[in-house]
Design a protein around this nucleic acid. Sequence first.
DNA 1: AATTCAGTTTATAATTATTCTAAACTGTAA
DNA 2: TTACAGTTTAGAATAATTATAAACTGAATT
Lengths: 137, 137
Amino acid sequence: MQQKKEIINKLRSSNLRPTKQRILIAKKLFDRKKTFHFTAETLNQAVNKKGDIKISLATIYNTVEAFKKAGHIREILTNNSKSYYDTNIKSHHHFYDSESKKLTDIDYQDVILDKIPNPPKGKKIKDLEVVISLQNK
Amino acid sequence: MQQKKEIINKLRSSNLRPTKQRILIAKKLFDRKKTFHFTAETLNQAVNKKGDIKISLATIYNTVEAFKKAGHIREILTNNSKSYYDTNIKSHHHFYDSESKKLTDIDYQDVILDKIPNPPKGKKIKDLEVVISLQNK
DNA sequence: AATTCAGTTTATAATTATTCTAAACTGTAA
DNA sequence: TTACAGTTTAGAATAATTATAAACTGAATT
């Protein structure tokens, strides 16, 4: 469980002023046992469900972008029109269920890459993602 | 080089009436040596550049969707807001250059997966994609 | 504690990509 | 040649996201 102080430090350490809104969003995102997959829409619902304070959708977008830039969350590849994010920032892989449009983490040790290509000249590898699309049997 | 007849057969075989527009789009897509990566926007430009006939953007979208359903093209995972497609329909992988927003095919034999996870109960694997994001050195 | 001000939030407008609508058009089967 | 389902089209509608600019606020300075 992340204490408020920890959250404030996390924000401060990435040059994000710890505002009421950011603290509340950070709590929703990081104060949980399992990692969390979300879109701007689902985060907005989660954050504005309870009485608390009302956070505008623009702030949801701003904050998600700021957290992404700071490396606190990462964006996941899908071919859905919405952007999906994950609070698990370690390099890892996903199942994408095209029926339910839900993502699930794949345990890191369950994908083993034996060979990966060299990047083109002048480029380096920033990230490698494996996405396994699922369909009903 | 795909002859007009071949293209018409391709369309017919997937129950797509071979209209002027579809034939022209199919030529642009399939009558080339290398596989082709495109978005609705770039395809629209490519198709409407030359004098030929004018194809509306709605038809571009309709046709891309129809070709995708028929399995003549496949959609590629990116986290760009636009949809990217590939005329290479064999399962294969990509580099995604986040600076130029360009995709490049990775030779099939250059990625070797040694282990992949079992799909969840009731689901089967539809596709597996590896995307390697690049950044400048 | 009051002041200051850059950083932040907000409602709303704007933009971008895509899908929908419904009228006009066209390939093809009869 | 006709008839009609399938297709195309312009333009409207929608969905997700980003931009704008006014109001607000955290925190450094007085």
